[in-house]
C-alpha cells in the first residue's frame, strides 16, 4: 500500500522537534485532509488552525517543503508530483512567532498593519447617510487587492522581511495600496507614507509573494505603484528612488544604463568615493568595469526620446 510520510515540525513553547507520521495514500485529497487525519487518528496533540475549508478565512497557511500554502486548497497529488516524493515536510509559516506546532501569533502583524491606517479616510463626496458614487472602473482597481484574506503566506515568503523585520509585510503594503487607489479615499498619502518610512524601497523584487499568494494578487505591481506615488509626492531623496531615477534618465540619454555613474547617482559622489572605492578597484582590476568606456547613444535614440516625450505628455494630460 502506498503511504505518505509527513515530517511535521512540532513546538511546545520551549522545545522544537520533527515528528513523523505515516498515512495511507488517497487520491484527490488536500494537505488539510492529511493534517486532520493525523490529528484525529494518530495524535490529538498536533496543533494547527483551520476553519472555512475553502480558502476564504486564511487560517490554515503552513509551509510544505519550504513553500507556504493554504492547507485547505493544496492538493496532495500535486505536491507529490511537483516534488517527486512521498515525503512531505510541514513547518509553520516563517517570519511569525510560533505559539505551538503550526500555530503562529498574529498580534505583532496586527500592530504593524495599523501603521498604514488600514481604513478608508473618506472624501467629502460621501457621508454615512448617503454612501458614495463609485464607477465600475474605479471599483475594478480595488477588486483584486480586496481579495486578500490575510493568510500570512506573503509574509512567510518575503525574502526582505526575513532579513529585516522593519519591512512591512506584503499584505500590509497591499492594504496601503487598496486605500491609496480607492476613489473614496481622501488621503492616499496617509497610507503610502508609512510604507515609504518602513523601507518600501527595500523590496528585493523576488516575486515570492506573488508566486505564493493564493489569491494571485499582483503585489509586485502594487509595490511598484506605491513607489511611483512616493516619487510623485516628491520623495526622491533616498537611494531607492535615486537608483530608479538613474535608470530612467540614463535610458533617455543613451538608451542604456551607465554602470559607472549609477552608484554616484544613487548614493552621491562622497559616499561612492569613501565606501565603494575598494569595490570599484576590484572591478577595474578584473576588467569587469572600465571607467573610461561609457555607453554611447544607441541607434534610434531619437525615437526613444520621442517615446519619453509622448508618454510624459499623455500623463501630463491625464493628471
Amino acid at each position: 500500500m502506498r503511504t505518505i510520510t509527513f515530517r511535521i515540525q512540532r513546538y511546545d513553547g520551549s522545545r522544537s522537534w520533527f515528528q513523523e507520521y505515516v498515512i495511507p495514500y488517497e487520491s484527490g485529497r488536500t494537505v488539510l485532509w492529511a493534517l486532520i487525519k493525523i490529528r484525529e487518528e494518530q495524535d490529538p496533540t498536533l496543533t494547527f488552525t483551520a476553519a472555512c475549508r475553502h480558502a476564504i478565512c486564511g487560517s490554515c497557511a503552513v509551509r510544505v517543503n519550504g513553500h507556504s500554502v493554504l492547507a485547505c486548497k493544496t492538493s496532495l497529488d500535486e505536491l507529490l508530483k511537483v516534488f517527486q516524493t512521498d515525503v512531505l515536510e510541514v513547518t509553520p509559516l516563517s517570519n511569525f512567532p510560533v505559539i505551538r506546532d503550526l500555530v503562529v501569533d498574529w498580534r505583532p502583524k496586527t500592530e504593524r498593519l495599523k501603521t498604514v491606517k488600514p481604513w478608508l479616510i473618506p472624501t467629502q463626496a460621501g457621508s454615512a447617510a448617503t454612501g458614495f458614487a463609485q464607477s465600475p472602473q474605479e471599483y475594478r482597481r480595488i477588486a483584486s487587492p480586496t481579495d486578500c484574506i490575510q493568510c500570512g503566506i506573503c509574509s512567510s515568503e518575503c525574502e526582505q522581511l526575513a532579513e529585516n523585520p522593519r519591512f512591512l509585510d506584503p499584505f500590509i503594503l497591499n492594504r496601503a495600496y487598496r486605500f491609496a487607489v480607492d476613489s473614496r479615499d481622501a488621503a492616499p498619502e496617509e497610507h503610502i507614507r508609512p510604507a515609504l518610512e518602513s523601507d518600501l524601497w527595500k523590496c528585493l523584487h523576488c516575486y515570492q509573494c506573488v508566486t505564493h499568494c493564493p489569491k494571485e494578487i499582483r503585489l509586485d505591481q502594487e509595490i511598484a505603484y506605491l513607489r511611483q506615488q512616493t516619487i510623485r509626492m516628491g520623495e526622491t531623496d533616498n537611494p531607492g528612488a535615486r537608483h530608479a531615477l538613474a535608470f530612467h534618465d540614463d535610458v533617455r540619454n543613451t538608451g542604456r544604463l551607465d554602470e559607472v555613474t549609477l552608484p554616484i547617482k544613487t548614493e552621491g559622489l562622497l559616499r561612492t568615493v569613501t565606501r565603494r572605492l575598494p569595490f570599484a578597484m576590484r572591478l577595474i582590476r578584473t576588467g569587469k568595469v572600465n571607467p573610461l568606456q561609457r555607453p554611447r547613444p544607441v541607434r534610434g535614440i531619437e525615437g526613444i526620446r520621442k517615446i519619453y516625450a509622448h508618454v510624459k505628455e499623455k500623463e501630463g494630460k491625464r493628471q
Binding site: 454615512a128 454612501g131 465600475p136 486605500f179
Partner: peptide, 22 residues
C-alpha cells in the same frame, strides 16, 4: 438601505452599476 450606505462609507468595495451605485 441605511446600513448599505454606512458600509459604503466605511469602505466596503461593493460592485457598482453604470451610475456608480451599489
Amino acid at each position: 438601505p441605511d446600513i448599505i450606505r454606512e458600509l459604503d462609507y466605511y469602505g466596503v468595495p461593493f460592485s457598482r452599476d453604470e451610475h456608480g451605485r451599489v
